[in-house]
Amino acid sequence: MSEPPKERVKYIDTNLNLPYHYYAGDYKALYLRALKDKKILGSRCSKSGKVFVPPVIASPETLAPCDELVELPHRGIVTTFCVVNVPVYGREIEIPYVVASVALDGADVSLYSLIQECAAADVHMGIRVEAVWKPDGERQGDHTDIRYFRPTGEPDAPFESFIHRL
């Protein structure tokens, strides 16, 4: 035969498996461990005074260090949100459900969390919410320690109070 087979090998399966050993860094380590003690940590910019949560070592705006760590309240405002109607692999939660951006009181950026204990249709921008934690003894120091946020029933926050904290 003067040439290779016409019927070629069309694909090669290449199953890459790369080992990593990620380090959280001290700020994220403190943040995650504090969740175990029902504390939400942020860091304050030494120049602008803005509070970042989770804490960052420097402000992306001013590039000044954020040396001071602060404890944030467990209440805040839904700034923006979405209603999820498609099942996500690995997430066992009844659809539709709400994922929201929650600006804690005193924080200048928001966290992402689920909103539960209310109908998806009742969630709106400006609604006041509070954290619902896993019970004592079950918290592991990771982001699932806050199970979700739920409405507090307080009056809505005005739009201007959170539009810059999305």
Partner: peptide, 21 residues
Amino acid sequence: TSEGSPSHVLNLQLEPFYAAA
């Protein structure tokens, strides 16, 4: 560099069918 395996990672710089394989 310490968080991954440079040997595994840099293998992927090579031509996939004949060299990386």
